[in-house]
Design a protein around this nucleic acid. Sequence first.
DNA 1: TTAGCAATAGCGAAATAGGGTGAGATTACA
DNA 2: TGTAATCTCACCCTATTTCGCTATTGCTAA
Lengths: 212, 212
Amino acid sequence: MIQVAIFEDNKHLRETFRLLLDQAEDIQCAGAYPDCINLVENLEQHPCDVVLMDIEMPGMNGIAATKLVKEHFPAVYILIQTVFFDDEYIFNAICAGASGYILKSTTPDGYLDSIRDVQAGGSPMTPGIARRVLELFKDKLQPATPVHDYDLTIQEKKVLKLLVEGKSYKLIAADLFVSVDTVKTHIRNIYAKLHVHSGTEAVSLALRDKIV
Amino acid sequence: MIQVAIFEDNKHLRETFRLLLDQAEDIQCAGAYPDCINLVENLEQHPCDVVLMDIEMPGMNGIAATKLVKEHFPAVYILIQTVFFDDEYIFNAICAGASGYILKSTTPDGYLDSIRDVQAGGSPMTPGIARRVLELFKDKLQPATPVHDYDLTIQEKKVLKLLVEGKSYKLIAADLFVSVDTVKTHIRNIYAKLHVHSGTEAVSLALRDKIV
DNA sequence: TTAGCAATAGCGAAATAGGGTGAGATTACA
DNA sequence: TGTAATCTCACCCTATTTCGCTATTGCTAA
């Protein structure tokens, strides 16, 4: 018997969900709440396996509530449901620990299947949501493309790299087997190309733009 | 009519897929290949909307093939199918540009639905795969967590932040409405806590460890 | 072959940074 | 109430950095 808690501010929807869940043989509604007041106490008194969470709620929103639930009940699975299709929402929900993300346009049976899926260790997602997740995944994880190269020469890049490592002019000169004055010249040219006026600025820019 | 190309080294499976697809009214098999030899030429001669890609193939594997397809035909959706449940595979497939990832245990109708889903802009995923994707997502993206704090005080963090922005002692002092000597003191203390001896080193460390 | 660029190197001046020492004021806490 | 931490400031001295100008060598493309 899968115990499910419902968080949904719309009273009509909330009651509809409760009826839908209780009508299924293997699912039971352990509680239905309009907001996140006393969330922890409520879940302690009425334990559940899965939380069906509305993302748009007055007061504490679904994302924050998800975090809170995960903090206090790490074993509970959270199924987010929303009418929105927003990248930020999706991203934050996943990071908060949601185990599934479905659109409210899902059919009644879809809800029940999704609840069974999360409980079985899956993460049901509306295909459209899944596409957004994959795109986000690629965007955020992939290359971190070096935007500018600033036309630095090979030697200048070497110098900049060593500068980023925190070395002094002397040490850089030693590393590259050139004189300190040469390093000075290179750094002067680097500063001009990056439009900066100090080592810290150069390092900051180099790291942010992944030049090194 | 959705045109689908099949890449599958097992002859029996390949033919089964072809029959399955052609039997659907809205789907047509545009080609079925046992390997990725002449992949680009084949797809050029027999254009398709969706590729059904086996991930385990002799010669070029499905991941590399996915990359290749995406390079030459960016608009083509790729549906990965596999018997494996491996995080590395999943991760690489997504980065290569796959639009869906289903297990081979899927039902015949499941295949057809998945193909329709990708064509419609969705990303069908077996719930178990989806769970792995979400976990990977969290693991790889979360590290936005500052690992060390180095016990910097509030003021020291402010100074470090301004240092990262490339400001000089003077400017930092002006920004914080304190004397340059105070800034020096803070920076001395910061260097001691971070175990560095120059601004460039401090900036480098601060950015890498996301202290600021 | 001339022009341009990259890399090298030097000199000098001015500004900035780094490190030592000490110390007063405020706040937090046991 | 005493102690510790934090924030503040000052003075001194040296090292390093920044920036100006100049100049040679080698390589390459017009």
